[in-house]
Structure formats: C-alpha cells, structure tokens
Amino acid sequence: MLKVYLSGEIHTDWRDQIVEGSKGLDVVFSGPVTDHAASDDCGVAILGEEPNKYWHDHKGAMVNAIRTRKGITEADVVVVRFGEQYKQWNAAFDAGYAAALGKSLIILQRPEHDHALKEVDAAALAVAREPAQVVDLLRYVLTGTLPG
C-alpha cells in the first residue's frame, strides 16, 4: 500500500480529483485539516483562548504541526499543491520538511509559479500541472502502467 500525504492549497477540489482518480489503486491518502476555520482555531479551541492574534495563530500552527509532521513522516509520497489565489508559505515549508526527510515529493503547480518555486521544484522528483497527472504518476509507481 502506498501512503500519500496531500499538502497545500485548500480552496479548490484538487484533493478530491486525486482521490477519485486513484480508486482501485492500493493507496491511502492523508492530509491537513482543510476546514479553514477549524485549522485556524484548533489551538484555542483545545488549549484555551488567546487575546493576542499572534498567539492565537501560533497555538493553531503548533497543534496543526503535530498532524502535519505525523502525516509527512508516515507518507511514502508527499504531494504539495501551490494554488493561484494565495501564497502558501506553509506548503513550501511542508515541501522542505518532506525533502529533508528524503520523501518522494511531487509538486503540483501552474507554470506561472515555475520561477518563484524553482528551489522547491529542484527538490521534487516530479512537477505536475494537473491533478490527473498526479494520478498517472501514482498509477505508474504502483503498477508500471502508462496513461492511455
């Protein structure tokens, strides 16, 4: 079984596309909490309120890091998606963490981000443009089958 951690942008359905396209493959997916409000507020919801927004966010980041570290550490492959709308600094951090652990890293990004992400791309084993390409990569890794 291939364990795949899906990191990055949470505003589109790219994860659903990969999961759906991978049906029938021996793969299990994990990832961060994609409910933005829950992710932002998990620290204070669990550990207590913070009047200062910095500490509010800091608590949430630390609690989320427990899940992220576990997911990336246990993964065979880490897919990191960089979307168009927001700068995903956390996604870049996840990519670096995965690379430092020697994980097989697939980056999913649009061509207009190539220059800004050149160092991240250099650490990856593949740079895909569409979720379907990630599915094709996973299928090839598991079965040796090419698309088409």
Rank of each mutant, 00 (worst) to 15 (best):
M1G: 13
V4N: 08
L6F: 05
L6S: 08
H11T: 10
T12F: 05
D13H: 07
W14T: 09
W14D: 04
I18G: 11
V19L: 11
V19A: 01
V19T: 11
V19C: 10
E20A: 15
K23W: 04
K23M: 07
G24E: 08
L25Y: 07
D26V: 05
D26A: 15
G31N: 08
G31A: 04
G31L: 05
V33E: 14
H36N: 05
H36Q: 10
A38K: 13
A38E: 13
A38R: 09
D40Y: 05
C42F: 01
A45M: 11
L47M: 13
L47D: 02
E49S: 12
E49H: 14
E49Q: 11
E49M: 04
E50Y: 04
P51V: 10
P51E: 13
P51L: 10
N52W: 03
N52Y: 03
K53P: 15
Y54A: 15
W55Q: 11
H56W: 14
H56A: 10
D57S: 12
D57R: 01
H58E: 07
K59W: 00
A61D: 02
I66D: 09
R67V: 09
R67N: 12
T68L: 08
R69F: 13
I72L: 07
T73K: 10
T73F: 13
E74C: 03
D76T: 05
D76P: 06
V77R: 08
V79P: 02
V79T: 03
V80N: 06
V80A: 15
V80P: 00
R81S: 09
F82C: 00
F82R: 00
E84I: 03
Q85P: 00
Q85Y: 00
Y86T: 14
K87L: 05
N90K: 01
A91M: 05
A91R: 00
A92K: 10
F93E: 05
D94C: 12
D94V: 06
D94P: 07
A95N: 12
A95I: 04
A95K: 03
G96S: 03
Y97A: 09
Y97S: 01
A99Y: 02
A100Y: 02
A100L: 06
A100N: 12
A100R: 09
L101S: 13
G102C: 07
K103A: 09
S104E: 15
S104I: 06
S104G: 02
L105P: 07
L105A: 14
I106H: 01
I107K: 02
Q109A: 14
E112N: 13
H113Y: 05
D114T: 12
D114C: 01
H115Y: 15
H115L: 14
L117I: 06
L117F: 00
L117G: 01
K118W: 02
K118D: 04
E119C: 08
V120W: 03
D121I: 03
A122N: 12
A123C: 15
A123G: 04
A123P: 01
A126C: 12
A128G: 08
A128S: 08
A128W: 06
